[in-house]
Structure formats: structure tokens, C-alpha cells
Design a protein around this nucleic acid. Structure first.
Lengths: 118, 118
DNA sequence: CGGTATCCCTAAAGATACTG
DNA sequence: CAGTATCTTTAGGGATACCG
């Protein structure tokens, strides 16, 4: 008889739960195709909405806005609006967001070593 | 006039392409809800199909099989079948798969530090 | 310039039933 | 035990049109 926690993780592995939750949490806030690349683009400096869009190339406006709002809601990036006409909006990493950069760097290195040549 | 590569990345950032491809590649082979947790569970030793299923708790058989086949196709895990009745199948990391463990460990640490308590 | 709002499409995941 | 097969549901993302 299996005994499953309400969260879905088996009780047998209860000692592993914090790490599992950590992994699931991180995976969740980075879910989707674009967030890793957006954060990596913000790694060196703050960027405008239009710069991010140009960097990603073929993302739609709707998707980009959704990604940015999601990252902001999770405390990963900051959004600063300059009330000009035309408007100017800059995005930058929070300290929480900066803590994700080593993960993304490792992912880049792994892909360079093991991925098909692009 | 923006000039976009066929791959969607803007030419302005052509020097960054290897890293971006690396990130996108890694993200792609780890896409989905379960792969990080499966790899982390295989970190210490090989595991049977039923062990993985028990560990994950509420994954469906269909989804688990799809995840495992995907990881195998990408060279991340090995699948070994013992032709017994009843059958016994063991999964283990390849060296490529082991190279992903530091990434997953970092994700776990990030989640423990910054995630909501679970 | 930096968005919203709406609709559509696809891939990922889940439920259920069946099998060598 | 370790799957397959089928169907349904859901989330992510894209296209398009419009707005302050």
C-alpha cells in the first residue's frame, strides 16, 4: 500500500522533501521557453522592453509581457517605468534573480558541451 | 529594421549565440514538470520503474513512461531490462546525465532559500 | 513605446482501460 | 511489473487588433 502525501510526494522519501520542493519551486518559476534567456540577458545590466524583445527575436508581445509579469510577480525582476512620452520601461534583476544566474550559466555550459552544434 | 536569424535570435547578439543555444538546449531536454525530479532521484543509484513512480507519487503511468523515453532518447539515462517474469527494468544516469546534477542541486538550494515553505 | 484584449493552436500532462 | 493505447484536459505560446 503506497502512502502518498497530499502534495503527491511519497512519505517514504519525506527526508528528501525540502530539496524536492526546492527543485519543483525553482522549476516552476522558470517554466516556459523564455524565462531563462530573459534572465540571462538581464545578467549584465538593466534592459528596456524593446531591447529584450529584439534580443529574443521571435517572441510575440503578448508572450513577452506575460513572461515579464510572471517574473516580476515571483520577485525575480524589477520593473521601472519612466513617465515619458513615449514611455520607457526598464527591467533589471532583483537579488533573488541574481541568485538564479549561476544555474543559468551552468545550463549554458552544459548545452555547449553536450548539445548539437547550433 | 530588426534583422533576425532564421533561428529567431537577433544578429546584434551573435556573439552570445553559443551560450543562448546552450541554455535553450538544456532547457529543452529538461522541459516538463518531472524530469528534474527524476534525474535527482537517480543521482545516488539506479532505480526501478516502480521506485521512480512511488517517489514521484502522483504521476500517471503514461506520463512517466513518456518522460523516461524522452530522457533516454536524449542520452541522459540508460534503461536496462532484466528478462524476468515479472519484468524488471532499471534506470540509471549516463555520464551526460550526471553532468546535469550540479544544475539540479543548485535549483534545489535556490528553492530552499527563496521558495515558500512547503 | 510598451503595452491589453481576444482568440486560436499545440504540447504536456492526466485518467482510464487493457496487456505480455 | 512495466508498460501501451486512447481520450480528455490544461497551460504555454502565437497572431492579430487596438490603446494611453
Amino acid at each position: 500500500m503506497t502512502r502518498i502525501c497530499k502534495d503527491g510526494f511519497n512519505r517514504e522519501f519525506i527526508q528528501e522533501k525540502p530539496k524536492m520542493y526546492g527543485i519543483a519551486y525553482t522549476q516552476n518559476i522558470l517554466s516556459g521557453r523564455w524565462k531563462y534567456l530573459i534572465l540571462w540577458f538581464l545578467k549584465t545590466k538593466k534592459r528596456r522592453y524593446s531591447e529584450i524583445k529584439a534580443f529574443l527575436g521571435n517572441i510575440s508581445q503578448g508572450s513577452l509581457t506575460k513572461q515579464l509579469r510572471g517574473l516580476e510577480a515571483d520577485g525575480i525582476i524589477k520593473r521601472k517605468v519612466y513617465p515619458n512620452i513615449p514611455p520607457r520601461v526598464e527591467y533589471s534583476l532583483t537579488s533573488k534573480g541574481e541568485a538564479l544566474i549561476p544555474i543559468i550559466d551552468l545550463m549554458g555550459e552544459f548545452g555547449i558541451e553536450f548539445g548539437e552544434k547550433g
